[in-house]
Design a protein around this nucleic acid. Structure first.
Length: 270
DNA sequence: TTGTGTTTTATTGCCTCC
DNA sequence: GGAGGCAATAAAACACAA
């Protein structure tokens, strides 16, 4: 039926083709129209004589916009797949083959490129969106991990504090030793990992220019290892613990390079 | 049948390249 | 300056729901 329709729905006059029937009975998934319905809408011819009836064409003029037949579209699509640009020779050949004006072929390619571009943009958007969704998912997972690690740090800090107090109770410390003990262990506990940073509480910031301690009043000084807890794989959660002293001058004398480090910018402590 | 949205064909104006 | 490409747009053809 489609091929029959295609045969009847076009009429050639010289190099130009004028479309008289309904060009897309089955065009791009649209519903099939019966031959009868089609002829009611737009008559088509059954004999060569009728095809070249000049009077009829004059009635039709000015010519209405006609859709290309599915056969023409198929051939155009095939050519477009091969090369989406049209050289002059190819345009002329294709126009002859299809019974269209070269201009029509050029216009079809132009519109087809525009459609392709739109589709391509949609595809690109889908790819980018998938990529974004994936990244977002990874980010969420990292945030959760971070929360988990932070709570572990809090729990370990609490343990550390308890144990430090016990040590202090069991072995009363000398005045000299007392100078090097933490003033406030809770303030120090943020220094365990650069990946775990709680913005809500003051901490020593590792790998950062910003330090928890106001440089005017405090310096950091190395002290004896207070407590070190190790993970299953042997990774140490706690390294050296530092203490802040209010008397900067005293500490500058006593602590040497730590104070220099503090005043001279970024420190990598672990 | 009609209103509305979509698709296709064609035009216009601007831009780039040779 | 002419040819060709592209973006924006018009207009016809068509689908489809109410």
């Amino acid at each position: 039926m489609e091929s029959g329709h295609l045969f009847f729905n076009t009429a050639c006059r010289g190099n130009n083709m004028i479309f008289l029937g309904n060009g897309d009975l089955s065009f791009k998934g649209r519903s099939m129209m019966s031959m009868e319905e089609s002829s009611k809408r737009r008559p088509f011819f059954s004999s060569p004589d009728e095809l070249f009836d000049d009077e009829y064409y004059e009635e039709l003029l000015p010519e209405k916009k006609r859709r290309l037949t599915s056969e023409q579209v198929h051939l155009l699509e095939k050519n477009f797949e091969e090369e989406n640009k049209l050289e002059p020779d190819r345009k002329t050949q294709l126009a002859k083959k299809l019974g269209l004006q070269p201009r029509q072929v050029a216009v079809w390619f132009q519109n087809r490129r525009a459609r392709w571009k739109t589709k391509q943009l949609e595809r690109d958007y889908d790819v980018l969106k998938a990529s974004y969704d994936s990244l977002l998912s990874s980010y969420d997972s990292i945030v959760k991990d971070n929360e988990k690690l932070k709570s572990e740090v809090v729990s370990l800090n609490e343990k550390l504090e308890v144990e430090a107090k016990e040590i202090q109770r069991e072995e009363p410390i000398s005045d000299k030793k007392a100078e090097t003990l933490p003033l406030d262990i809770a303030q120090i506990t943020g220094s365990v990992s650069s990946a775990i940073v709680d913005e809500g509480s003051p901490q020593i910031v590792v790998d950062s220019v910003d330090s928890y301690f106001p440089a005017e009043n405090y310096v950091m000084a190395p002290i004896e290892r207070v407590q070190s807890e190790e993970d299953d794989d042997g990774t140490s959660y706690f390294s050296d613990v530092f203490v802040a002293h209010e008397n900067e001058q005293q500490n500058n004398e006593a602590l040497g390079w730590w104070s220099i480090m503090l005043h001279n910018g970024p420190q990598v402590l672990f």
